[in-house]
């Protein structure tokens, strides 16, 4: 029982990260019907920003500020930085293509992804860095529920991910920009005719989506995983898978898809085989696509003829 609980907690934490990435895909897809391939690399940039903020604040073992403040600054700077990066990517790689074929933005996104990965390689070298979280938060800190041990970093990441998702749903449902965003997703032309400034909404969409990926990048670093230029590829793929499983364009779908994917991955790693866990994720993706092509939360689209 303890083992299962442990795997579930791990899965939910991992799933929270996937869900944050998936949200970025879904938000952008909802508004522009573009698959933002470069999203995984935005996540990578977020992790790097977090790392450099940590170094700037004195490094893992000699922080100049209290630890919670440092973590807060890491998240804030990383989210703002990646958010701005998202806006820049949209402005230069996608906006010129808004009226072109469907395949052009995909290729352009592929190009941006290659650019970001290799720019990072050029600027930061191929060294794998770590946040070294255990030097400022001892790994013994934490608590147990029954026989399930939850360390404090994992717990904080899980709570933070939930908090960000909650804030996002509030934002989408309650603010003017959020409402405009949903309106564009339903019918772009009608939204434009209603006087919605579509460029502004798209900018916001990219900012928010990229900022969430940046946050996910910092969380990944805090969980003691390596930070390197190629780190965004697989999580990007998983995030997209989560978005598709949940029904692309659907915000609750992205959250549920991410959490489900995290749990499935964690359980297959725990019970079946570590080597093939991505394989099971792939099977899950194929299964969902065959059984529910529009995802778990997606609506059936009507073909227009």
């Amino acid at each position: 029982m303890g083992y299962l609980g442990q795997q579930l907690v791990n899965g939910l934490t991992l799933g929270g990260i996937y869900a944050l990435i998936a949200l970025g895909y879904s938000l952008v897809y909802g508004v522009l019907q573009i698959l933002n391939f470069a999203h995984g690399d935005v996540y990578m940039v977020g992790a790097f920003i977090g790392y450099f903020v940590e170094i700037a604040l004195g490094g893992p073992s000699h922080t100049k500020v209290p630890v919670p403040v440092m973590i807060f600054i890491m998240f804030a700077v990383s989210m703002i930085g990646t958010g701005l990066l998202g806006i820049v990517i949209e402005r230069f790689a996608y906006r010129p293509l808004r009226k072109s074929s469907r395949i052009a933005p995909l290729i352009s996104a592929l190009g941006v992804s290659i650019l970001l990965q290799n720019a990072a390689l050029l600027l930061f070298s191929a060294n794998i860095r770590t946040y070294d979280t255990s030097s400022f938060i001892p790994s013994t800190a934490g608590f147990s529920i029954g026989s399930v041990n939850i360390d404090s970093v994992r717990f904080a990441v899980l709570i933070l991910a939930m908090l960000l998702m909650f804030t996002l749903s509030k934002w989408v449902n309650k603010t003017q920009v959020g409402r405009a965003m949903r309106a564009i997703a339903v019918d772009r032309d009608a939204a434009v005719m209603m006087g919605i400034d579509i460029d502004r909404v798209i900018r916001w969409t990219f900012f928010v989506g990229a900022a969430l990926a940046g946050a996910a990048g910092v969380m990944n670093g805090l969980l003691l995983r390596g930070v390197s230029n190629g780190m965004g590829f697989i999580p990007g793929l998983k995030g997209f898978t989560a978005a598709v499983i949940g029904g692309i364009g659907s915000i609750p779908g992205a959250m549920a898809g991410g959490l489900l994917l995290g749990v499935v991955e964690s359980l297959t790693q725990g019970y079946l085989s570590t080597n093939f866990s991505d394989f099971y994720t792939f099977i899950l993706l194929i299964a969902v696509m065959l059984l529910r092509p529009n995802g778990l939360f997606g609506k059936k689209a009507i073909v227009k003829a």
Binding site: L97, P105, I107, S108, L110, G111, V112, I114
Partner: peptide, 22 residues
């Protein structure tokens, strides 16, 4: 850094190509 440079050029080319001459 020849290999990185090559990838950078390819990446930039894909984006520019899509915009200028898809």
């Amino acid at each position: 850094d020849a290999s990185t440079t090559r990838q950078l050029i390819i990446g930039a080319m894909l984006v520019v190509m899509m915009i200028v001459r898809p």
